[in-house]
Design a protein around this nucleic acid. Structure first.
Length: 626
RNA sequence: GACCUCGUAGCUCAGCUGGAUAGAGCAACUGCCUUCUAAGCAGUAGGUCACAGGUUCGAAUCCUGUCGGGGUCACCA
């Protein structure tokens, strides 16, 4: 039964009967706060205009009406304008009786297709903490959508082309001496990342002196246009007073010199060769990308995330260019004298935005336009969700607007789940300052911590080596995943690697522990407890736990609507807390009253299944013992 | 500078579609294992919900402004 719906209907009836009004009121009820007596609360302030009586009197009258006319309302109390309703406990018992055997909570199909794109790495460096948040959010969101009744496709768009990829390639070619992941005994993504760093280091070494000179005005560029921009910047720098401005101008000059260096010129040359399909360049590109994918796959597997479909920017940018032509033909885009293609979004409060370079090559957004179209051509989904950090808010505003203006029907289904950055105690992660927390390192450290804590507690007698390994793995992943998913995706969050992650309190292991304790009880309970219960009195802790269980379907829908795994985390904590209180206040296996014992076992069973399902939505596995 | 975002206990976070006395966890202190796993439970202490106005019967929640943190404003991705 739908308890809230029935109550609301009864209240509406009461208002109509008592105050002789025909206009239907927007009746809303909420759960009664724990400090007050009651299950549901109706706030009467909004209808005192209709009752023309004081809030207390109005609440009293409605309460009295419900008590006599609605069989499931057992009692009520009024505090100020708050009408607290106590429903017949048999309703809760009945709910448990009809639902306790459920092991799946997947909602009925909504017949809608949803794609979630997440992870979306660059192939020039290994994954870090920021990617972990992205991956965990994306995977969990996929689970949530799928179990809320959507047909779901998990997609990963790999950024496998561009100047940054060439940097690693060039550095490996020049300084790598043929090193391979095998010879270096290094994961492929880390090896490629190493050469990305090598490139930056060499570039810094080779340009340090020139930059010094250039800042003093002693530098000559071969290309006239850069020479001109350099002179301009130099002039501005001389008169600049503001610290920020000086830094910006100095950076610009630095950039001119770097771009003028032999290394960068060789790099750009390589990019041109790549775009021209030069066999040797393509071969190197494929080899190094394969190393990276091999490395990524190891990390993905460890994290427990997966994808149904991979997109590669090297494949989609061409379709993007076709769409640019389409947009030009439609008059959505326009061309400047240098042949570059733009869209004017000033009427929508945004800027003019470049969608294709003058030389005909694509920029970031060109690729995204192409990918959006390709996704829809292949899957025809109703909704397309992008799990991408909030630093790209503007980019996605522009992208969605462009797709709309191109007249793409699917544009309205595009959604950017914009999550906040992960900060360290020292502030933002910066690769230049070496403060990036590597994903593989972090997972390994978490494993060690989980192992230590578990050994400290010494409850693992009789577990095999393999079972122990699995236990440490699941505990460490649970701690990490829960820690990250617990906070609202949209907010920035702080991660302190030193203090590591707790295994006590509001944590994944706490929820797992609650599950494991229930499993322990059920293992000892035999199987003569599943008989039907028709009537019995309920302990407050039992009612409370059933109420939380009753909430789950609505919570799942909410989490989906809000794109928020955090709502599931919060729910798991609530349920675990409710059950743990019950566990502490009453006996289960030692209960002598058979009816009560059976009731509690059903309650425990249903709690365990709900926790397991909830954790799975977060990408966390349960353990049977811990 | 313009635009976007965030500001809740010492710390990390809930609560934000307006409702009662603002909640958890960590850290501190106090209890509870001869009884089902103490990675647990119960309790004490800790708050001008950044600040100032406004709307409302009612504001942490909505609006405006101020201050503070972060982000974006590339022919980078």
């Amino acid at each position: 039964m739908n308890i809230e719906g029935d109550i609301i209907a009864s209240i509406e009836k009461a208002i109509a009967a008592l105050y002789n009004t025909s206009d239907s009121q927007q009746v809303k009820i909420e759960k009664t706060k724990t400090d007050f007596v009651g299950d549901f609360t109706y706030v009467v302030f909004p209808i005192v205009r209709i009752s023309r009586k004081s809030p207390e009197q109005t609440a009293e009258e409605i309460g009295q009406y419900l008590k006599t006319n609605a069989s499931f309302i057992q009692d009520f109390n009024v505090i100020k304008g708050f009408l607290n309703l106590v429903i017949d406990p048999s309703i809760w018992l009945n709910y448990l009786e009809t639902n306790w055997e459920n092991t799946s909570f997947t909602r009925p199909s909504k017949n809608e297709k949803v794609m979630v794109e997440y992870s979306s790495p660059n192939t020039n460096k290994p994954l870090h903490l920021g990617h972990i948040r992205n991956n965990l959010l994306g995977y969990s969101l996929s689970q949530i959508f799928q179990h809320t009744g959507y047909d779901l496709i998990k997609a990963n768009l790999i950024n496998d082309r561009g100047i940054h990829i060439c940097k690693s390639m060039l550095a490996w070619k020049l300084f790598g001496n043929g090193e391979t992941p095998q010879s270096a005994n290094l994961k492929g993504d880390h090896l490629v990342g190493k050469y990305y760093v090598v490139f930056e280091t060499k570039l810094r070494e080779q340009t340090a002196e020139s930059i010094e000179n250039a800042l003093k005005g002693n530098f000559e560029f071969t290309q006239a246009n850069i020479q001109n921009r350099y002179s301009d910047t130099l002039e501005k720098l001389k008169t600049a007073t503001e610290e920020k401005q000086i830094a910006k101008l100095s950076d610009d000059i630095k950039e001119f010199v770097r771009n003028n260096s032999n290394l960068m010129i060789a790099c750009q040359d390589m990019l041109r060769k790549w775009e021209a399909g030069d066999a040797e360049t393509i071969q190197l590109w494929k080899k190094m990308n394969d190393w990276v994918y091999e490395g990524f796959n190891i990390t993905y597997t460890k994290l427990g995330v997966s994808f149904d479909k991979y997109y590669y920017e090297s494949n989609t940018y061409k379709l993007g260019k076709d769409l640019v032509q389409e947009g030009l033909a439609k008059g959505v885009f326009y061309q400047k004298p240098d042949n570059s293609v733009w869209i004017d979004l000033t009427a929508d409060g945004l800027d003019e935005k470049l969608v294709q370079r003058g030389d005909g090559t694509s920029v970031y957004i060109t690729q995204d336009i192409g990918t959006a179209e390709l996704k829809f051509q292949e899957f025809g989904m109703n909704r397309s969700i992008y799990v991408v950090g909030n630093e790209q808010d503007y980019h996605f505003k522009v992208l969605f607007l462009i797709m709309q203006k191109l007249g793409k029907s699917y544009a309205q289904g595009m959604y950017h789940l914009s999550y906040g950055m992960v900060d360290l105690p020292s502030g933002k992660m910066k690769s230049r300052e070496g403060t990036v927390v590597d994903a593989d390192d972090l997972l390994n450290e978490m494993y060690e911590t989980a192992k230590e804590k578990t050994i400290e507690l010494g409850k693992t007698d009789g577990l095999s080596e393999e079972e122990l390994n699995n236990l440490y793995t699941q505990l460490s992943l649970s701690a990490l995943k829960f820690f990250i998913l617990k906070v609202d995706p949209r907010k920035r969050m702080l991660f302190n690697p030193q203090e590591s992650i707790d295994f006590q309190g509001d944590t994944g292991p706490f929820v797992q522990y609650t599950y494991a304790r229930i499993r322990s009880i059920l293992r000892q309970a035999g199987n003569n407890w599943q008989t039907a219960i028709t009537a019995t009195a309920l302990h407050p802790a039992e009612i409370n736990t059933i109420k939380v269980l009753y909430d789950f379907p609505a919570v799942l829908e909410d989490a989906c609507k809000d794109y928020s795994p955090a709502i599931i985390c919060q729910y798991c904590l609530d349920l675990a807390r409710a059950y743990n209180r019950l566990y502490n206040e009453v006996s289960i296996l030692r209960e002598t009253d058979e009816t009560l014992k059976n009731l509690r076992l059903k309650l425990a069973h249903h709690t365990a299944e709900t926790l397991k399902f909830g954790l799975n939505l977060l990408g966390i596995n349960v353990v049977e013992r811990m």
